[in-house]
Deep mutational scan, measured.
Amino acid sequence: NLRWTSEAKTKLKNIPFFARSQAKARIEQLARQAEQDIVTPELVEQARLEFG
């Protein structure tokens, strides 16, 4: 299971509600691909840039 830093959680809250669950799934996918067990603000930002 993935842990989220408080900064990453804050960044996730800045994503519009309607896109948040999809973004969260993508962020967690990116973390797993990078073999990380902690979601960082950088991963959230990477996903945000993908979504535009």
Rank of each mutant, 00 (worst) to 15 (best):
N1M: 10
N1F: 10
N1R: 13
L2Q: 02
L2G: 01
L2D: 01
L2I: 11
R3N: 07
R3I: 13
W4F: 01
W4N: 01
T5I: 03
T5S: 10
T5Y: 02
S6L: 11
S6E: 15
A8H: 00
A8V: 01
A8N: 00
A8R: 00
K9F: 11
K9S: 09
K9I: 14
K9H: 08
K9Q: 10
K9L: 15
T10R: 14
K11Y: 09
K11V: 10
K11N: 07
L12R: 01
L12E: 01
K13I: 06
K13P: 02
K13V: 06
N14E: 15
N14M: 12
I15R: 01
I15N: 02
I15Q: 02
I15C: 05
P16Q: 03
P16V: 03
F17E: 15
F17H: 15
F17C: 15
F17N: 14
F17Q: 15
F18I: 07
F18V: 06
F18W: 15
A19R: 11
A19K: 12
A19G: 09
R20D: 03
R20E: 03
S21P: 10
S21Y: 08
S21W: 09
S21R: 12
Q22A: 13
A23C: 09
A23N: 02
A23D: 01
A23E: 03
A23S: 03
A23Y: 09
K24N: 02
K24L: 10
K24H: 05
A25L: 11
A25E: 10
A25V: 10
R26D: 04
I27F: 01
I27V: 10
I27D: 00
E28Y: 02
E28T: 04
E28D: 03
E28P: 00
E28H: 03
E28W: 01
Q29D: 08
L30K: 04
L30D: 01
L30Q: 03
L30I: 08
A31I: 02
A31H: 00
A31G: 02
A31D: 00
A31T: 06
A31C: 09
R32V: 08
Q33A: 11
Q33N: 11
Q33Y: 09
Q33K: 09
A34P: 01
A34C: 09
A34V: 08
E35Q: 14
E35M: 14
E35C: 13
Q36V: 14
Q36K: 11
Q36F: 09
Q36Y: 10
D37A: 10
D37V: 11
D37Q: 11
I38G: 02
I38C: 08
I38E: 08
I38Q: 06
V39E: 00
V39M: 01
V39Y: 00
V39Q: 00
V39N: 00
V39T: 00
T40R: 04
T40W: 04
T40S: 04
P41A: 14
P41T: 09
P41K: 08
E42A: 08
E42Y: 05
E42M: 06
L43G: 01
L43P: 00
V44H: 00
V44A: 02
V44S: 01
V44Y: 02
V44L: 03
E45L: 06
E45S: 05
Q46V: 09
Q46F: 09
Q46N: 05
Q46D: 04
Q46E: 07
A47G: 06
A47P: 01
A47E: 05
R48L: 15
L49H: 09
L49Y: 09
L49T: 08
E50V: 08
E50H: 09
E50Y: 07
E50A: 07
E50R: 07
F51T: 06
F51N: 05
F51H: 07
G52E: 15
G52Q: 14
G52T: 14
G52V: 15
